[in-house]
């Protein structure tokens, strides 16, 4: 694998780009026989051509949602559309257009990487058999496994296994890639390579739906984000929208907090909070340079004015209410 290139222009997506969604669910719910609700009324809307980061702590229902999308697990309630067709009914025609990596790589330990892929390729009824070897070798090359293609899977390192899983998803050009934790177990270099693969697939016109419990790992490639917590989709939108939701705040250090608060309120910020050394308020849509100008014009001695943008990771934790704990 080579070093990542810059993000390519988003290629025009499928024929119904803009009108239809690549993934759409309405009221998707899964209640397991034990009564546990793993997925609770989830309404996913993944636009064509997006790189959609599906985030949430371990156990928040991401993998179950992905399994339902792909027809592995039946939904208790709700509708699913993949590439405009209803799942799981249209699985035979839709799934060949979808490349998937579900819950980590799984292959036959005694078969080589290449034989494992040939086996999966043989399962695809929509591609001719004579090009099987070419498809498999090309996918192996894409993930940098050509040298290890003949090695038994059990001899693969975790990173190589993850790459083989990605190769399976990339066996042919896909309109949609559904990748569950593709960076799990990878070192920083491997994580970067996966991000590069995602960008590349996106540049070729694929919609990418990628889950992770670490926002930082996929933040750089995502255009859209959905955040799961305890089986519910607690946020869905574009990355700028997520940033906006993060609540940018302005902090003014001054000896005249009350006077500063009055100015801020007049400007239309959120309710200012008085501090011993100044005042803090949600900035909302107020431009920060306007705040500076008005404060100075009102004769307030501004010692420091800081616009605070919370780390997305902090926001993520705030949304999901999770630190290191795992959802039940």
């Amino acid at each position: 694998m080579t070093a990542p290139v810059g993000v390519a222009e988003r290629a025009p997506a499928g024929p119904d780009a803009g009108t239809a969604l690549a993934i759409r669910t309405t009221g998707l719910t899964k209640r397991f026989p034990g009564g546990q609700v793993a997925v609770d009324a989830v309404d996913l809307a993944v636009p064509h051509g997006a790189v959609y980061g599906f985030l949430g702590p371990n156990g928040s229902g991401k993998t179950t949602t992905i399994r339902i999308l792909l027809g592995l697990v039946s939904a208790t309630a709700g509708q699913i559309e993949l590439l405009g067709e209803a799942m799981p009914r249209a699985g035979a025609t839709v799934l060949p257009r979808v490349g998937a990596l579900v819950e980590g790589p799984a292959f036959h330990p005694y078969l080589s990487g290449r034989d494992n892929l040939l086996r999966l390729d043989a399962g695809d009824r929509t591609v001719p058999g004579r090009a099987a070897r070419a498809r498999v070798d090309s996918a192996l090359e894409r993930v940098g496994l050509t040298a290890a293609a003949g090695k038994r899977y059990r001899k693969y390192s975790l990173g190589m296994r993850q790459r083989l899983g990605l190769a399976a998803a990339l066996l042919r050009p896909r309109e949609l890639l559904v990748l569950d934790e593709p960076t799990n177990g990878l070192d920083p270099q491997g994580t970067r390579e996966v991000r590069h693969l995602l960008r590349e697939a996106s540049a070729e016109g694929s919609t990418v739906f990628v889950s992770s419990h670490l926002l930082s790992e996929i933040e750089q490639v995502c255009t859209d984000v959905g955040v799961m917590s305890h089986g519910r989709l607690v946020f869905q939108g574009s990355l700028p929208e997520l940033r906006a939701a993060a609540g940018v705040r302005v902090r003014v250090e001054t000896s005249m907090p009350e006077a500063a608060a009055t100015v801020l309120t007049r400007l239309g910020t959120g309710r200012p909070e008085l501090r011993p050394d100044g005042v803090v308020a949600e900035l909302g849509t107020v431009p920060s340079d306007k705040v500076t100008a008005d404060l100075v014009a009102a004769g307030i001695d501004v010692r420091q004015l800081v616009v605070e943008r919370p780390d997305l990771e902090d926001l993520f934790v705030a949304l999901t209410g999770e630190g290191f704990d795992v959802d039940e």
Binding site: T126, P128, P173
Partner: peptide, 27 residues
């Protein structure tokens, strides 16, 4: 990594009979 090669063809929607049968045999 390389970009996708020319052997890959755009996926067709519905499986064709002969291709499907040969895939069944391969499986």
């Amino acid at each position: 990594m390389s970009t996708s090669s020319a052997v890959l063809t755009r996926p067709a929607g519905r499986p064709s009979g002969a291709v499907a049968r040969s895939a069944d045999l391969r499986l």
